[in-house]
Amino acid sequence: MSTNDVLLQAQQISRHYGDFIALHNVDLSVSRGEFVSVVGPNGAGKTTLVNVLTGLHQPTTGNVHFNGSNIAGVGAVDLATRGLARAFQLTSIFPELTVRETIAVSACSYLNMRWNGFGSLFGSRKVNDIVVRTADAFGLAPWLDTKGSSLPHGRRKLLDVASAFALHPKVMLLDEPTAGVSTADKHGVMETLLRAAKHMGIEAIMLVEHDMDLVSRYSTRIIAMQAGKKIADLPRDEFFANEEIISIVVGKGAH
């Protein structure tokens, strides 16, 4: 894979909280066409890593590049407009919004539109087109006028992801998108998510996940973390053939 295919790259990033080192000199890259999973036991630094990659926290040292530009410390909203987005659970933040309104908030941000209330917002054909296209991609069209908080848990998780997809990112970062979803439903959620990603032109996905069944089924490459350090970065088959790494990831309790 050529360097032109690299979309997201972290170089020697560390994150300190006082004397505590949450991340230590981590290098990683995500390229077009990849589905990269980040795994590790509790306290491994997975969430801190995603927070730094998505601009929520600035790295203490090191750089993060997206599409060739240094984005270390750039805010999450600005990053999303550049094409790097993270599911941000609007259904928890705005539980009274309908599916239509939740997706429209993201569509409005993507279009850089200002609005005063949803009445004027839905007068915009551009916003409505994004809402309808996104809802269709995620199978949410029948629930457009349903409050997000009233959806079954699996569909609520899909709405969280759909609202991020409406930002039209090149790279999507997902933090346990099936958490709380029943074992029977989790693959349905993932399959819907992947179909929608293809339909909407998402170029790469990074997944933070503790469910090794999902990691095994969907990843092209897997990064393992332990105590803030990257301990493995391997293609899926090589990763699952490494018993030592597997024991570290799952043997001490996964997050």
Rank of each mutant, 00 (worst) to 15 (best):
A227F: 13
T134R: 11
S124C: 06
N242K: 05
A204W: 04
G40K: 11
G251R: 12
K186Y: 00
V131S: 09
N116V: 03
Q12W: 00
D213C: 07
L151T: 14
G148S: 08
L214Y: 08
A164K: 09
L97I: 05
D136C: 03
G201K: 14
G201I: 02
L214T: 11
G148A: 07
C108D: 04
V215C: 09
I231Y: 09
V36Y: 11
V250L: 12
R86H: 02
L23N: 15
F88C: 03
K147W: 01
V52G: 14
N51V: 04
Q226A: 07
V50R: 11
H168A: 13
D233L: 06
N112F: 00
G45M: 08
L173S: 10
R114A: 02
L49I: 09
A162E: 12
M200A: 06
G73C: 08
H255A: 10
G148K: 12
A76E: 15
I248A: 06
A166D: 06
S120P: 08
F118A: 14
L144C: 13
L121D: 14
F88L: 10
G139M: 08
T60Q: 12
V74T: 12
Q58V: 05
L194I: 12
V189D: 03
L90P: 09
K157M: 03
A196Y: 05
A80V: 01
I231K: 14
E244T: 14
E96K: 14
A162V: 06
G188C: 03
H65E: 07
P169H: 02
L207Q: 05
P41Q: 04
E243W: 01
V39D: 13
H24W: 02
F240G: 14
I248F: 01
G123N: 10
G117E: 09
H24C: 04
I248L: 13
T192D: 10
A166I: 01
N70Y: 01
R100V: 01
R114K: 13
V99H: 07
H210F: 02
I222W: 00
H210M: 03
S31V: 01
A254I: 15
V64N: 00
V38D: 03
D136K: 12
D19S: 08
K252Y: 05
F94M: 08
K46H: 06
M200C: 10
S163L: 04
F118I: 15
I246A: 13
V64C: 13
A184L: 04
S109R: 15
T134A: 09
S150L: 10
L79G: 12
N42D: 03
F88R: 15
W115I: 06
T61M: 05
L234V: 05
G201V: 01
A76N: 15
A137C: 05
N242M: 03
V6D: 07
T3I: 13
S92D: 09
S219W: 03
L194D: 11
A197L: 04
M172V: 12
I71E: 10
W143P: 05
L23A: 08
A162Y: 08
A224Q: 06
R125C: 03
E96C: 03
T183Q: 11
Y17F: 15
A241M: 06
S31R: 15
L174N: 02
A241H: 09
H24Y: 12
R100I: 02
L8K: 11
N67Y: 02
S219D: 00
Y218D: 10
R100T: 04
I130W: 05
Y17C: 08
G62S: 09
L194C: 09
V30D: 00
S31G: 07
R15M: 11
S69V: 10
